[in-house]
Design a protein around this nucleic acid. Structure first.
Lengths: 184, 184
DNA sequence: TCAGACTCTGACCGATCGGCCAGTTTGTGA
DNA sequence: TCACAAACTGGCCGATCGGTCAGAGTCTGA
């Protein structure tokens, strides 16, 4: 045996996790992982049943934690669910940052496309504007939240007409940024 | 000539846009597009310089619109930038929904992975809990916003420690949901 | 010491991808 | 009518992918 088996497995998972989070699942080949780990592609497939199995083993703890949260929230109704939902969700995301990043993995990869040159910089400046051009970390966080929130709502089916959706989104985003509309 | 050229081009872009938004850029082959359009793969490459060129032509209008917003905001400072930034960003996302969806394309694809079975349903229930289990569309929008906001902040570098970040995120998310903490 | 299990490698496989090209069909202006 | 160009096809290419396999090297317990 050339290496400690379970330690080697963990090393593979560590490298795979890092690469998946940067170049995406599809964008990362077994060759890439093997190269980084310093072994052959076949060695990976000796320890794991396949590329999918690596991803599964990486994501399973996060999914299980989500399932636990799901069960916990099921017992609460109405307003009482809101705070536990928020805290549980925030905890979950922060605890499994890298796993979550794998879900969003295509985005950084896509932003490297020539057609999207400059979008990253423009987004940074947009966040700066949303934060009211202050150095306040909380304002910065709120601005990042808006940056993430709007696209999700915009690309999801919502029971509102476009004009209504626009109005609600603008109002809610301003509220998040502590810039509630004071105009009539 | 078998078809109207410019109309055919538009049809290709329409189909490609739809497929990219569902199966992702990498997850969509030229064969897939050709099959849906009803022509050969070579016909696509007759009208476009390559797969990348199709994506570029699809995304360029959205990127240009973002660049315009970027310029417009550059002239505003401090608080005066916040509202135009929010309105401009919301408009942008709603106007280019499908293009934005292409950016997030890997997510639905990834959620089909066996390791993530049930995550979609759990997310729906999470949104329901975040919305306080009401049918109010605005609460639903706010809940979707939180669902999108937290992961973005969590996976982005932020000048805050984990505990601080957690506190800020929870507070901001509750604020977005109109459930501000009233406890000491 | 040695048989056998464990670990790993290099070579190879079939599938799929984006892209290229020779050649055919089809529409059009002189 | 005919020459030409535009529009398109089927077939093919090299590259890359995930995955398999026979065998080599290594460790361990009897």
């Amino acid at each position: 045996m050339a290496r400690n088996s379970s330690g080697f497995r963990r090393e593979i998972l560590e490298v795979a996790s890092r690469l998946f989070a940067v170049t995406g699942f599809k964008g990362t080949s077994l060759q890439d992982i093997a190269g980084e780990v310093g072994c052959s592609k076949a060695a990976l497939l000796y320890h794991f049943d396949g590329k999918d199995a690596i991803l599964t083993e990486l994501l399973t703890p996060a999914v299980e934690a989500l399932a636990e949260l799901d069960v916990r929230l099921a017992g609460l109704d109405g307003d009482t669910a809101v705070r536990p939902a928020v805290e549980g969700f925030v905890d979950l995301v922060l605890r499994f940052r890298r796993e979550v990043k794998i879900l969003y993995d295509e985005i950084p990869e896509m932003l490297r496309h020539p057609a999207l040159a400059g979008v990253l910089e423009m987004s940074d400046r947009l966040v700066d504007a949303l934060a009211g051009r202050t150095a306040d970390p909380e304002a910065h966080v709120a601005a990042l939240m808006v940056l993430g929130a709007v696209p999700v709502v915009g690309t999801q089916p919502v029971p509102l007409g476009d004009d209504e959706l626009r109005a609600v989104l603008v109002r809610r985003a301003l509220h998040t940024l502590d810039h509630d509309d004071t105009r009539p």
